[in-house]
Structures are given as structure tokens and as C-alpha cells.
Amino acid sequence: MDIIVEQLAHARLITAEDREVPVSATLRYSADDPLAVFVDFPAEAALNGEEVTWTFARSLLDQGLRAPAGHGDVQIWPYGRSRTVLEFHSPHGMALLQFQASALRRFLLHTYAVVAGGREDMAGVVERDLSALFGGV
């Protein structure tokens, strides 16, 4: 049985003009994909007007709440005492968002209540991914 954690989070999108635009996002975690977290943004928050989902390692979020973490498409770092910045890069551009660190921590704690760190069932993940790769269900 798949256990899913979802949490609404409010963020501030930092524009090229240094304006802060309020944006809602949904943080998601699925026990079926225990190493990943998902951040869903509504269509109005995306450059192309379509909903966007970013997927990255749960460990990256954990690390980024304490110190700068990541490279490439997703980077996360603390900003002051109460905020955390998530920076997303795509072929369409870059998005810089500030979240309340407490909301991200609360979400992360809920994910660890579902699947503890180091207890992720990698055999199930590998089996599912191989099955999908080779045309299974």
C-alpha cells in the first residue's frame, strides 16, 4: 500500500527584478518512491502556463535545510534563520523560491515518519524501475 504525504507550502518567487511574488506549492512524498520528494507548482507559477513538478532527492532537501546543497538542476540553501531557498534550473529558465524553513522541516519529518532515513526499500524501487524499463507492469 502506497503511503503519500502531501503538504501545502507557501513560497515567494524571486523575479529578475528582485520582486517577491507569492506562490503556492504542494510538497509530496510517496513511500513507493522513498528516495524522492516532489514539489508541484500550479500553472500560474510556471513560465509556460502549465503545472510543473520538480523531483529531487529527499536527502538533498534534508542537507539543504542545514547548509548549501546540490548542484545542477536543483540547489537548496538556508537563507537567514527562517527561510530556505530552492533554486530550479531547466531549459526554459531558472526559478528562485524562498520557503519557510519550518514548513520544509515539518514536511521532511512527516516523510521520515513514513519511511525512516536509511530504511528505504531499494529492492522494491529497483524492481519497479527495471520492470518499467523492460515493458512490465
Rank of each mutant, 00 (worst) to 15 (best):
P34F: 01
T84D: 10
V114Y: 06
Q100I: 01
V21I: 12
L97Q: 08
V137A: 12
R28T: 08
D2Y: 09
S82N: 15
D62G: 08
G72D: 00
V5F: 08
L61F: 11
A101L: 03
S59P: 10
D62I: 01
S24P: 03
Q100Y: 11
P42F: 04
L104I: 13
R128I: 04
V126K: 11
N48H: 01
L35D: 13
L96R: 15
L27Q: 09
R106I: 04
L108G: 06
F41K: 03
Q100G: 04
D2K: 11
F99Q: 01
G136A: 06
V52E: 11
A123N: 10
L8F: 11
R106S: 15
E127T: 11
L130I: 05
E6H: 10
D32A: 15
H71V: 10
S82W: 11
Q63G: 07
D40N: 14
Q75R: 11
Q98M: 13
S30F: 04
L130S: 07
V37A: 00
Y29G: 00
V126H: 05
A67K: 14
A46L: 01
L109T: 14
F107Q: 15
T84N: 12
A132H: 09
D73M: 04
S90C: 07
G124T: 13
A103G: 05
R83H: 11
A45R: 00
T26V: 08
A103Q: 15
L27P: 02
E127G: 11
F107N: 09
G72Y: 00
P42A: 10
L133K: 06
R12Q: 12
S82F: 10
G70K: 06
G49C: 09
I4L: 14
M1E: 10
H71P: 02
F41S: 03
L96T: 15
L47G: 14
L35A: 12
L108R: 13
L104Q: 15
E127V: 13
S131C: 10
E17D: 15
Q100F: 02
R66P: 05
S59N: 14
N48E: 00
D32Y: 07
Y79N: 15
L35E: 11
E6K: 12
E44Q: 06
V37S: 02
G117S: 13
V137P: 03
Q63H: 12
A46V: 01
F99M: 02
F99E: 01
L8I: 10
T53G: 07
G136K: 06
D40W: 07
A103V: 14
Y29L: 02
S131P: 01
G49T: 05
V39T: 01
Q75E: 15
A116M: 12
G118F: 01
L65S: 07
E50C: 04
S59Y: 12
M122V: 13
V52N: 09
I3P: 03
V125L: 07
V74H: 01
T55W: 05
L108C: 08
E44S: 09
A57S: 05
T15F: 13
